[in-house]
Nucleic acid binder design. Structure first.
Lengths: 144, 144
DNA sequence: CTTGATGCAAATTGTTTGCACCGAA
DNA sequence: TTCGGTGCAAACAATTTGCATCAAG
């Protein structure tokens, strides 16, 4: 999986493809886990100078609006982001409590039930969050 | 629905039933929507003096640990809490994007699929978040 | 070139800590 | 009476703003 998919999405939405934006995508691809703004900053400043916190915050929010990143609450109740592996396709995520790794889940919790729920509550469902949490296969093996 | 259920849960867990804790529960029952710490503080300080922010934070986290409140990310990416209407029973929530109201959803997204997903990913699923978001019936009527 | 992207400093806001005092059980 | 609960001040951390400069397209 390369960064090209995300870069083309950004390009289509009129964003400029700057080295920092590319680096953020590469970082999420490499780390494969949820990252808080400070995590992103700490990793990026190792390779990129200068770098400011506002830039990190701005990039993360833009990516979130572009559908590339999903905001999630971390265990420490800190705003974090998960990379959306297939931004075009509907899917959900499994987050490991031990290593924070994010994995795709094809199963959709609401499949087929949306209309039923809408009728029962009289509401209109626009989005849904289906997030699984536990211990991933690697951490289970390592008994972490 | 009264506050008694929550108070008995807290009592069973060894918490003291103070006026402030009661007031927090009453507030969530009245407001029936997600509230950030600052929201709770602003409402409570109208009726309770003195009151400090640390107290609000401590109560919210305690209630979260006790299973009475669920931490959620608000639209503004701010840590907020939703009152768990039936702390003993497994269920999920619908959050209105317009008025922030929280409603119970009996349907469980993972029902029956947990084992399948665990086998596929090789992971152990401990918890899951299934949160529906959209516009509630009242807001639909009022075309808000 | 043009306009969006970024750095920087500073302000603002959110959250936690330490400790003395208070009050529910 | 005894701890857990709370206020307060202060520290700490997260996030945003304003503006001058930079660079992708």
């Amino acid at each position: 999986m390369s960064a090209d998919l995300y870069l083309s999405i950004l390009k289509n939405k009129g964003y400029k493809l700057t080295p920092k934006r590319k680096a953020v995508i590469e970082l999420f691809l490499q780390e494969n886990r949820i990252l808080a703004p400070r995590d992103v900053y700490r990793q990026l400043e190792k390779q990129i100078h200068p770098l400011g916190f506002p830039t990190v915050y701005r990039i993360l929010e833009e990516f979130s609006l572009a559908g590339i990143l999903i905001p999630v609450l971390s265990d420490e109740r800190l705003l974090s982001y998960a990379l959306c592996r297939r931004p075009q396709e509907h899917h959900h995520h499994f987050i490991c409590h031990s290593c924070q790794r994010v994995e795709d889940v094809d199963y959709c919790g609401i499949a087929g039930a949306q209309e039923t729920i809408e009728k029962k509550l009289g509401c209109r469902i626009d989005t849904h969050l289906f997030q699984l949490e536990g211990i991933c296969s690697d951490c289970l093996k390592n008994k972490r």
